[in-house]
Design a protein around this nucleic acid. Structure first.
Lengths: 218, 218, 218, 218
DNA sequence: TATGAATGAGAGTTCATTCAT
DNA sequence: AATGAATGAACTCTCATTCAT
């Protein structure tokens, strides 16, 4: 992360403009993220973001057409974080596996921390809603895919509505934060995982999977 | 609480101050509710609320010190709506019972519709957070109580963490709205109920309960 | 000043309406006076005045067209307080006489206490300015008259500009309050009187007057 | 304080931020001064001040947290104007000397013209009251000092209360404005000076001073 | 007449965005 | 490109005054 400016002969804006620009842009995005998370979107001013990023107010508008656009960029930049890892159900204790997957995903969401920012915006900003909806659909799809795999292997309840279950899993993870904030207690992923496993797998299968614990997981 | 105004003769300007004032106050609360729901809390101005309620801006401030206080009143006024009915698990198909309970509760929440209003506020307004936290704790307690009943009758999984399950149920219901808005699809309470029942009851118990389907529900 | 309405057959609102009205009007004026003095004119609201007087807001406007008019009434009602007593210079120690006159006048002004209310208003309200200007002119005239008497008896400096001296006396008394408020010290009328006497009377005359102290003072 | 912008070559945007900002700030202070004087403090809005200064409303708030703070700045900026010059009594006609000193001081106060602004504020704004009280104390102290000099040289009445006389002088000058505004007549400083001289100097001393009129004045 | 709820213009203030430097 | 001062629309809230009861 050094500045690359300590050249020999010097010269002026040696570092390609692009790069410096990217740096500023990133700084702004980071600052936006930090401030939106800590104070909320409406409560954060463009000036603050600029100041936090160490640039002038006007510079903000060189990189983003407005505050909203910064938020969009923020979301898009970090979108991949929304994607949970794909589980492979076979070959390990599914509860344990799930618990760690959930925790990992939960932590990424937490870091991103847009929960408290988004709900209010979604209703007035349909483009944003769409961007975010897309992200959630991707998550949903990935969970759904994992379940399908399990289902095709005959591991799940036969009458399982994969859609509903995927959604339930997604919702439970997303809301862990809220639980944590409000109750003070840490989220117990082991328990959540247990509960989810019972939604998905019949007891016999669970038993079987747990016993065929052969190799590594992560 | 009848209107007392439908007099035959008389026509005294009856119940004048109190009642009219209540009407205005209610109109404002309703308008606040409607606008907060459709535009979000931050995006709604006191002026708009007043206009929507058909009163002048200043009138708003006769009844509420500010927008925030109206929101608080709104929540307190409707708090009981947050409380789900208490289920009695025995003596009917638990899935069916649960599905209808969930739907009823969901509809009340929906009507209240504060979901999109609250998240942004909770982090900056600790008093509000507390009010709402209390409400949620009550919901949680009621669900928890229903589960305890079932548990004590030996109906549930023996290793069930009632706390986690209560929370999961609460979260799933609360988030139905979001699902509906984003996916367009109606929430399928039957499926959710099925999933929850599997979290709570071992298959054998479920089977048994379903077969002992004799009489009344509530 | 009886109201002439106390008819024989009379009836309920036994106390003649006029009188009740006068009472309210007076109550409002008193309240206005008290509040203007303690909070300033702009900082006092019509509602407060009404509340303080124990009547409804609307009632205020039955008696006064607006807040300003109440102030005018207030001033006119109490205008005579502005008039200082007329001194008779001969026949007593003039310093002592003056000191007591000044103190008496000062106390009346003090009680009226409009100092802090008026200056700001004078510039925007020419009618009020006129009302008050008139009052001050009367005071000035009375002081001037007292001095003329003295002058005609050959007691004063021969080259005395009575106008200037009258004004100076008026100003010094009026500003005593301010001095008191700001310095904390009580105004020493004896000293002021001494100073004024020197403005007005040559030392020889003063000496003479002081010695011819024959009869009563106050 | 020349503008530095009239460069021959160069044309660097010289002294850009500081100076322009100072200009705006000054413009606002001037406008505040002008408007407070002509309309009174309460009657002047921040918006008006900004408009009068030719800037936008928001700009006002860049330089001053609010109207009150502008007033404070105004007072502090001009505080030295409150200080009257120190007289040296000996060696010239004291009446003449005093008249010109009074007039000079009067004119400065007049220019500052806060008289009509302050009284209403002093009672509710103790910080402001203090700022202004300090200023008045300085004036008082300076007059007092001048008198002490004279007193120590044995020029004054021996029983003179310097404190009271200083205050009287201060008050008379400060109130000249009011007199002028209300009576329409110009203040006659010659007469006031005469009156004050009689408060301070015994006739014999006055006579003597007037005759020893030899050389320089101040 | 008396009441006090209702009104709405307008004051004070903020902040997203523009623009001269 | 970068800066940060300037802009002004829009928001919150107050209060003199009106008006239905």
């Amino acid at each position: 992360m050094p500045d690359h400016e300590d050249k020999l002969v010097g010269e002026f804006p040696f570092v390609p403009k692009q790069e410096r620009a990217q740096q500023k842009r990133n700084a702004l995005i980071q600052s936006g993220n930090a401030l939106f998370n800590s104070k909320g979107y409406e409560q954060t001013t463009a000036k603050e973001i600029a100041a936090h990023a160490g640039v002038a107010t006007g510079t903000f508008y060189r990189y983003f057409s407005d505050k909203r656009q910064l938020l969009m960029s923020l979301i898009e930049d970090k979108l991949e974080n929304y994607l949970p890892p794909e589980p492979s159900w076979v070959s390990s204790d599914p509860e344990f596996l799930l618990a760690s997957l959930l925790e990992a995903h939960y932590n990424r969401l937490n870091e991103l921390g847009l929960h408290r920012v988004l709900p209010e915006l979604l209703s007035k900003d349909s483009e944003l809603a769409e961007v975010l909806g897309t992200a959630r659909k991707k998550i949903h799809a990935r969970i759904h895919y994992g379940l399908t795999q399990a289902s095709e292997k005959g591991l799940t309840w036969t009458d399982l509505d994969l859609d509903t279950v995927s959604w339930a899993i997604m919702v439970l993870v997303e809301n862990g934060q809220e639980k944590e904030r409000q109750s003070g207690k840490k989220v117990d992923f082991r328990e959540i995982a247990k509960v989810i496993c019972r939604m998905v797998f019949p007891p016999a299968v669970l038993e079987h999977l747990r016993n065929s614990e052969n190799d590594t997981t992560e």
